[in-house]
């Protein structure tokens, strides 16, 4: 709902707007923090034993170097309900991996990281996800009647509160297209979301062409993670335009037990996932 609303407001502005350009701006520099990308996504129909956690540090906003990987941390995940402990191995490139993870729907997991003498922790519950019922392509839907778009449909179970994270990644592009979805307005219905690229010469965006490949992931997520991603996506897409809310720092679910002010960035999520790859005809 919010997305639609934002599109409308954006369009209101753009229709009348004359020009946008990229400029140099001095921005403040905040403290460097640990960034946790602990996304334990269990693909439906697999064991889900192979999992990776990424650790890095934040950088100044206009710094264009790749993320600074963090090595030498100890990382482990515990299933609070069963007591099972999964140790992650430092791969010395910012990745910490395990091949022994056991995902259980409804169970709660905690993450513990020790890095530079400080103990970081967070916890999350694993939610299930609906299957993707259909992936199609069309031109007549979407914003532009002539541009290709890929449509993904799934059935929302009726009567339960569900939250989803939908991710499209075109293999030719660097940046993904992200959707945060809650079933408040679509409870019990088949919902369809589309990814369409509108040609934009200034930003070097071109429409989808036959042969383009798009990876699609649909994740069942917790309400708190939905709130986190909703804000992340909103700010990623439009922070600072006149009709977006005042941008704010994102607050994830991990904390620093030793130095509360040195809060880490990122999130610890445990989800069930379905994925498909679509090739435009």
């Amino acid at each position: 709902m919010k997305i639609i609303y934002k599109i409308i407001l954006g369009a209101l502005v753009l229709t009348s707007t004359s020009c946008t350009d990229v400029i140099e701006v001095d921005v403040p520099e905040g403290p460097i923090r640990l960034t946790i990308e602990a996304s334990l996504d269990w693909e439906k129909g697999t064991l889900g034993n192979n999992q990776t956690i990424l650790l890095s540090t934040s950088t100044p906003f206009f710094d264009n170097q790749n993320p600074n990987p963090v090595n030498g941390a100890t990382v482990q995940v515990t299933n609070v309900d069963s007591g099972a402990v999964f140790a992650f191995t430092d791969q010395q490139d910012g990745r910490y991996t395990t091949d022994a993870f056991v995902p259980v729907i409804g169970d709660t997991y905690t993450l513990d990281i020790n890095y530079e003498g400080e103990h970081y922790t967070g916890s999350e519950t694993l939610y299930s996800v609906s299957d993707i019922s259909e992936v199609t392509q069309s031109t007549e839907d979407g914003e532009d009647d002539e541009a290709l778009e890929v449509n993904v449909s799934f059935e929302d179970p009726e009567g339960i509160e569900n939250y989803y994270f939908l991710r499209f990644q075109s293999q030719n592009d660097l940046l993904p297209e992200l959707f945060d979805i809650k079933d408040e307005f679509i409870d019990g219905n088949e919902a369809t979301f589309y990814y369409e690229k509108i040609e934009d010469e200034q930003d070097n965006i071109s429409e989808f062409q036959p042969g383009d490949v798009v990876d699609i992931k649909l994740l069942g997520i917790s309400r708190n993670y939905y709130n986190y991603m909703q804000l992340l996506i909103e700010q990623f897409e439009s922070s600072g335009d006149p009709f977006s809310a005042t941008p704010v720092p994102l607050v994830g679910n991990c904390i620093n037990l030793d130095n509360t002010d040195n809060t880490p960035y990122g999130y610890f999520r445990v989800t069930q996932m379905v994925q498909e790859t679509y090739i435009f005809q």
Binding site: P67, S239, P247, L250
Partner: peptide, 23 residues
């Protein structure tokens, strides 16, 4: 409100923002 840093998450660069309306 301007960003005061960035970090990589979910394949995108996420901006962290400083104090409300401080810029």
């Amino acid at each position: 409100t301007y960003p005061n840093g960035q970090y990589q998450y979910e394949g995108v660069s996420v901006a962290n923002f400083s104090e409300r309306n401080a810029d």
